[in-house]
Design a protein around this nucleic acid. Sequence first.
DNA 1: CGGGATCCTGCAGGATACTG
DNA 2: CAGTATCCTGCAGGATCCCG
Lengths: 125, 125
Amino acid sequence: MQAGTADEEWREDCAPRRTLELFATKWTSMILHTLHVRHDGPARTGVLLRSIPGISKKMLTQTLREMEAAGLVVRTVHGTVPPAVDYALTPLGARFVEPVELLYDWGRRNADALDALQAKPTSRR
Amino acid sequence: MQAGTADEEWREDCAPRRTLELFATKWTSMILHTLHVRHDGPARTGVLLRSIPGISKKMLTQTLREMEAAGLVVRTVHGTVPPAVDYALTPLGARFVEPVELLYDWGRRNADALDALQAKPTSRR
DNA sequence: CGGGATCCTGCAGGATACTG
DNA sequence: CAGTATCCTGCAGGATCCCG
């Protein structure tokens, strides 16, 4: 099998790599997760804002926009005078919750491994 | 449960978020994966370079450096005249292979969901 | 309250050339 | 072959102000 390239389909647009893009935009997975744990219905913008510490209003709306365009969430406007908007997962969006939870669960169960890291690739000042 | 903030520990340095940082640096997970599937021993720099289409020589060494500092890989120099260097997973690094494979496997099994995306968050020209 | 528009910044990350 | 050093670029993402 010689393998000048790779021993499996490992092109730039293969499935694994495209999955990674989900996590390339910093907030996407957290929004998916939040919409999931709050599956008692759609979530208002303000709720999302307060549920995800550190996210800015701009990035929240921007990411939601992209997710809506991607077909991951649906946006519903209720009022017009004091705007009341909520977001809900689409069936497609719900599917992407799985890899997110997979990853997050692993993190929770392996906090000791995370602690054992000498220096983090990012977030190191 | 009121939840002004979050319904679970969801601070900026919680385990899930720190797990995400693993994938923040674009190439880390791919290197982990490559070192894993080539577990028949350590891998030479050139092998890694050819196994990961699209990675540049610079990013490869740079990422490997960070991973070494983090304790994920060990670097071994063999020659000095024609430098022969190889990298191997540490026990800690091996642990981080799991979430990577988890994610990649999901992607392979759910290529249809990836195809169903209308617009990708990234890689959109 | 939700969200657009604008400005500004850091940093991931590519290209290239040089050393041993 | 492996690695370093520069230079340069795009873009994620923060802060701020304004609109309905």
